[in-house]
Nucleic acid binder design. Structure first.
Length: 373
RNA sequence: GCGGAAUUGGUGAAGUGGUUAACACGCCGGAUUGUGGCUCCGGUAUGCGUGGGUUCGAUUCCCACAUUCCGCC
């Protein structure tokens, strides 16, 4: 069956929404942060550790799994869930972000996008049909339309053309989509132009997708521009469908965009920051490589209930990071993912209590205020 | 005891009679947003073993001393 989204409550003073999503692999509440597991693994974490972080859903990537190990391997394994031993929901990105991060403008054509296989140099082309076909085989719970994620800055003319192409790609993908266990989302592009976002939403809604993603953010734009893009998209999106903001995971951005009506987020930052020695805390981001933590025998956060904070000190984790031991990256990944998922949990509480604006004020005061350590 | 070679930052080291002593590692900071885990960007010797001398000017040339290494007695 397809996913079922239920809007449980709208916050009294903002556009923030409390909801729940039922999937073939369990139910989770929104707003929710989704850890990124590009290559069918959230880097350094086991599925059991993800469960301990309260992960409700994770993300995997069509482009990377297409190149390695190939969608047929995963199909023959019995699908992505079985292949990676994750029995919770999975969302797959379409490869659209790789259009932004890996392809050159000249590689984008009406048919699709040309790539070089990074492992063997083969010339490849990813089309909307191919992306959907791969995702059907991966058997994720939620698939994404193949889109073009436009970088920042850009010209209005380019965005206009790109939005139209992304809409044509969305239609082509939907026409070949054929996995009854899977849901398909359309992706709203249109950069910072309200009329283009509106137009894109309207055309996608006509095609009747199972949910909607907001794309084209977290590509280098200023924060206020990002919030504006999200506002424009949410303003026109139907209330009875889930909204997923792609690639956003800075804590303040999660707070601000939940307030603007976003339900799901994903971001590589918690795991990437972890690998580079950073920890997210209520009082801001800290860098465990800093000399001041050398003999700090307290946990990253005394208020955190994650596995890393319950058992290990900053001093020890700093040592692991300095020694390039993978356990350090793993402990910090657990902590950072736990932190972001817990942040969405607190936001759900704030929506229930209709005090999300107060929550934001308190959050900003703590996160950007005077640092204690 | 005699002879030879060497002595540059936390480390390995390049280098020149004349602006800010190369580079690498380390160290100290910073970055990281639908993920190429080995990435990127800054900062880091007011001084070239010590003391004299030559010179307009010495880390660079000369002398002595100290230390280290090698060879010989």
């Amino acid at each position: 069956m397809k996913i079922e989204y239920t809007l449980l409550k709208e916050e009294k003073n903002t556009r923030a929404r409390l909801g729940k999503i039922k999937t073939n692999y369990g139910i989770f509440e929104t707003p929710m942060f989704m850890p990124v597991g590009t290559q069918a693994t959230v880097k350094t974490l086991s599925p059991e550790e993800l469960k301990e972080c309260d992960a409700g859903i994770i993300l995997a990537n069509t482009y990377h799994l297409w190149l390695r190990p190939g969608e047929d391997v995963i199909d023959h394994a019995g699908g992505l869930h079985k292949f990676m031993n994750w029995d919770g929901p999975i969302l797959t990105d379409s490869g659209g972000f790789q259009v932004f991060s890996l392809a050159k403008p000249k590689d984008i054509t009406e048919e699709g996008v040309k790539f070089k296989n990074q492992y063997n140099g083969d010339s490849l082309i990813l089309t909307p049909e191919k992306s959907i076909e791969i995702q059907n085989k991966l058997d994720s719970d939620i698939a994404m339309s193949f889109d073009e994620c436009v970088g920042f800055p850009h010209t209005r003319k380019y965005v206009e053309e790109s939005v139209e192409r992304t809409l044509r790609w969305a239609k082509r993908g939907k026409d070949v989509f054929n996995n009854p266990r899977q849901s398909l989302f359309g992706i709203v592009q249109g950069a910072e132009f309200e009329d283009l976002r509106k137009h894109c939403v309207e055309e996608l809604v006509k095609m009747d997708f199972d949910g909607y993603s907001i794309g084209g953010t977290s590509v280098g734009e200023p924060k206020d521009v990002q919030y504006q893009m999200v506002e424009y998209a949410c303003k026109y999106l139907p209330k009875d469908k889930v909204r997923y903001l792609m690639g956003v995971g800075d804590p303040i951005d999660i707070v601000e965009n939940v307030i603007r009506g976003v339900d799901i987020f994903d971001c590589v930052s918690p795991t990437r920051l972890a690998r580079h020695g950073h920890a997210l805390t209520k009082y801001g981001k800290i860098n465990l490589k800093n000399a001041k933590y050398k003999e700090d025998f307290t946990p990253i956060s005394s208020e955190c209930n994650c596995y890393a904070c319950k058992h290990y000190t900053k001093s020890y984790i700093k040592h692991l990071i300095n020694a390039e031991e993978t356990f350090g990256a793993r402990l910090l990944s657990i902590h950072n993912i736990y932190y972001l998922i817990n942040l969405t949990k607190e936001l759900r509480e704030a929506i229930k209590n209709d005090n999300i604006l107060e929550y934001r004020e308190e959050f900003i005061k703590n996160y950007y205020g005077e640092k204690e350590n």
